[in-house]
């Protein structure tokens, strides 16, 4: 009972999400501390390919491959995770804290009667099992301890590097899950289609706020810059609430947490809740006409300028 079970997440094309490999990195460190092996659970329908891919990274992959798991719905997935925890004799169950992970994992924790620490950013101390997690919009780091024997952890993807493949290949084992009657029915997914890199994976993120004045300006000015830098586009909560851009572009405590190599915040004042979502970025640039804007307090480079002039100039000169 000292093994670690990583819950995999697949994209709609059934490819293994990079966030899963960040959870593997946490799992390897956890396994060192418990003396166990790293197992993984892949759920879905027709998932042999991602299961084989994941076997390059862990000791054992359990695949729950059945019709009832085709759509990533919390109710059947939590049941499958409980079965996977039993099959892998897991002491620790870990999943990346994506929206899917946040939905599914606490329900599985309830089924297991296990305590769960959310959005973990690392271990506190070189031994033992004390975990660090941000609270209060990232203004405080809490060190927590899960008191139950079985421990459930969701990990913040931006805080861990993606794992490299292991030396030897792991084994793949089927896992049959008794799902029983279900109370949830998947109806549809309306995807946001974008040619740009994924916001949480992008090397460069260009983000805009209220300073753009309206949706048309936002699009007209930000897109050419994102094109030049092959960047993902993010937005402040105000911009998302105003309906200028889709919900999943929101960067912040209540939106997405990003940590790209370069984050360019344009016309964003730097509210606590926005900063919570981007302060892990390696280099932060702020462009704002208000020299007193709080964003300048955390920016590596600040440019006090009118964005309507500075952004086109930047596009032209890059």
């Amino acid at each position: 009972m000292s093994n670690i079970l990583v819950i995999a997440e697949l994209g709609t094309d059934k490819s293994l999400k990079k966030a899963t490999l960040t959870a593997v990195t946490f799992a390897r460190e956890a396994a060192k501390r418990t003396g166990g092996k790293v197992h993984a659970l892949v759920m879905g329908k027709g998932v042999a390919t991602p299961a084989g891919e994941l076997a390059k990274y862990v000791d054992v992959v359990h695949t729950a491959d059945q019709a009832g798991l085709e759509a990533p719905v919390a109710e059947p997935y939590a049941t499958a995770i409980k079965a996977g925890a039993g099959a892998s004799q897991a002491q620790v169950i870990v999943m990346a804290a994506t929206n899917h992970g946040k939905d599914v994992l606490p329900r599985a924790a309830a089924l297991l009667g296990a305590g769960m620490a959310s959005d973990v950013i690392g271990f506190d101390g070189s031994a033992g099992f004390q975990l660090k997690r941000p609270i209060q919009a990232g203004n405080v780091i809490a060190t927590v301890e899960i008191t139950t024997d079985t421990k459930v952890v969701s990990t913040r993807p931006t805080e861990f590097d993606a794992a490299a493949p292991s030396a030897g290949a792991g084994t793949v084992q089927p896992l049959a899950v008794e799902l029983g009657p279900q109370k949830t029915r998947f109806v549809k997914l309306d995807p946001v289609v974008s040619e740009r890199p994924d916001l949480t994976d992008a090397r460069v993120v260009v983000s805009g706020g209220r300073g753009f004045k309206d949706a048309e300006n936002f699009k007209k000015l930000i897109e050419p810059l994102a094109d030049k830098l092959n960047a993902a586009i993010g937005a402040s909560r105000a911009v998302v609430d105003a309906g200028w851009v889709p919900n999943d572009m929101q960067v912040g405590q209540t939106g997405k947490v990003v940590a790209p190599d370069l984050y360019i915040a344009i016309g964003i004042s730097g509210a606590i809740q926005h900063v919570a979502g981007m302060k892990g970025s390696k280099t932060i640039v702020a462009i704002n006409k208000d020299a007193e804007a709080p964003i300048f307090q955390i920016a590596d480079y600040g440019l006090v300028a009118d964005l309507f002039k500075a952004v086109p100039e930047l596009v032209e000169k890059l």
């Binding site: 296990a114 305590g115 769960m116 620490a117 004390q130 941000p134 990232g138 203004n139 405080v140 780091i141 809490a142 060190t143 927590v144 301890e145 899960i146 008191t147 139950t148 302060k279 932060i284 640039v285 020299a291 300048f296 307090q297 955390i298 920016a299 590596d300 480079y301 600040g302 440019l303 006090v304 300028a305 500075a310 100039e313 930047l314 000169k317 890059l318």
Partner: peptide
């Protein structure tokens, strides 16, 4: 089931420099 043991400040991020132009920034 999850005990809060202690609290600490997150790593501080300090203000960098203000640049005078787009050229300098690039």
């Amino acid at each position: 089931k999850v005990k809060m043991l202690r609290f600490s400040e997150p790593p501080a991020r300090t203000a960098g420099q203000i640049v005078d132009s787009v050229d300098t920034l690039i």
